[in-house]
Design a protein around this nucleic acid. Structure first.
Lengths: 179, 179
DNA sequence: CGCGACATGTAAGCAGTTACATGATTAT
DNA sequence: ATAATCATGTAACTGCTTACATGTCGCG
C-alpha cells in the first residue's frame, strides 16, 4: 500500500498545527466515517514523518512537565501532500463487510432468525443516521465551495446518503423475506 | 480480528465441495463486493483449516499429474460455521476511502480540478453500476426467500443501491461546487 | 511453440490491532 | 481519593499484499 495515513496526517497539519493526541481525536470526529487509526499506529508514523523532514514539532512543557509535542508541516511536507492530492484514485472494489457475509449465507438460517438480524440491523443503521444528522446540524448552512469545511460537508453528506440507502435496502430485504 | 476468511471458506464449502482455485474464483464473482482474498492468503488458510479438522481434501490427479485438491467441510466445520452465522455483528464505523480523503482536503484544489475529479469519479461509479445491473439480469426473477441464492440476491441489491446512491451523491457534489 | 488460464505453494514486508507501559491534569 | 481524560510511547501479533517460485492444460 501507499502509506495513506501519512497523507491524512499531512492534510490535517495543513489545516493547523496539532499534537498527536489532537490528530487522534480528529479520527473520532468528522474523519471517522472514512479514516481512522489507533494511537499505537499514529505515534510511530509521526516519528517517521519527522525523520523524513515532512513535519517537525516543538515541545511544550507545563510547570510539572506534561510533555506535549505540537507538530507542524514543512514545505517539503506540503509539496508531497499536494502531489498526493492531485492523484486519480481508483474505486475500491471490495468493502469487507461481515454482516453482508452473514446475509449471503443466510439460507442456513430460519426465516425468523433472518428477519431478526435484518430488523436488528435496520435499527442500528437508523440510529447511525440520527447521529450523522446531528453532525449535519452543526453546519448552519451549506458551506461555500471555497471554504475549508466544504470537503467536510460533502463527505458528511455522502455518509448520510449512504445510511439512508442502507435503511431502504434493509427495509426492502425484510419485505422480500415476507413474500 | 476474528479470522473472517475462515468463515467465508466454510460458508462456501457448505454450498459445495471446491478446490482452492475455485474458492478463489468466487472472490472475483458475486462475493467480490464484500469479501476478497489473494491466493497467497487463501492456500495457507486452507492448510490451517485442514489441520484444525474443519475441512478435509481429496487429491485428484489427471494422467500427467496436475494436482487438484477438492475440499469438503467436516461436521465440526459445519458446527463452527453455524455458530458464527448466528452472531450479532456490529456496524463497521470506518470504511477507509482514499477518494473521500481527497475530497475532504479538496479546499487545496482549484474549482476546475475539483469538478474534474468529481466528474471522473461519477463516470467510474456509473460504469460500476452498469456492471452490477448485468449481474442482476442473471437472476431471471427475485429468488424465493428459502432459495440458496436469496442471500446472493440481497447483497447484490445492496451493491446496486449503494452505487445508485454514490452516483446521486456525486451529482449533488458537482451541483454544490457550481453554486 | 507460446500464451493464457488452471493450479498450488512460500517468503518478505507493510498495515493495523491488541496489549503492555507510564505519567500528568482535571473534575467530582 | 479516584476516575476520566490528557498525553506519549513500545511490543507482539494478525491480516493482507507483493513478490518469488513452480508446473500443467488447452488453444491457436
Amino acid at each position: 500500500m501507499k502509506r495513506i495515513l501519512k497523507y491524512v496526517i499531512l492534510g490535517l497539519l495543513m489545516r493547523k498545527n496539532m499534537s498527536g493526541y489532537e490528530i487522534l481525536k480528529s479520527f473520532n470526529k468528522n474523519l471517522n466515517e472514512f479514516w481512522s487509526a489507533k494511537h499505537s499506529q499514529l505515534y510511530p508514523e509521526l516519528k517517521k514523518l519527522t525523520e523524513e523532514n515532512l513535519i517537525f514539532f516543538t515541545t511544550t512543557l507545563s510547570e510539572n512537565s506534561l510533555e506535549k509535542k505540537i507538530y507542524s508541516i514543512t514545505s517539503k511536507g506540503k509539496e508531497e501532500f499536494l502531489s498526493w492530492l492531485n492523484n486519480d484514485f481508483e474505486l475500491i472494489t471490495t468493502i469487507k463487510d461481515e454482516f453482508k457475509l452473514q446475509l449471503f449465507f443466510s439460507n442456513h438460517l430460519s426465516l425468523d432468525k433472518k428477519l431478526n438480524i435484518l430488523k436488528n440491523r435496520l435499527e442500528k443503521h437508523q440510529l447511525k443516521l440520527k447521529k450523522l444528522r446531528i453532525f449535519e446540524e452543526n453546519f448552519k448552512s451549506v458551506p461555500n465551495c471555497q471554504n475549508e469545511d466544504f470537503g467536510d460537508y460533502l463527505v458528511l453528506l455522502g455518509a448520510i446518503m449512504r445510511e439512508e440507502t442502507n435503511c431502504k435496502w434493509l427495509q426492502k430485504c425484510i419485505k422480500l423475506c415476507l413474500n
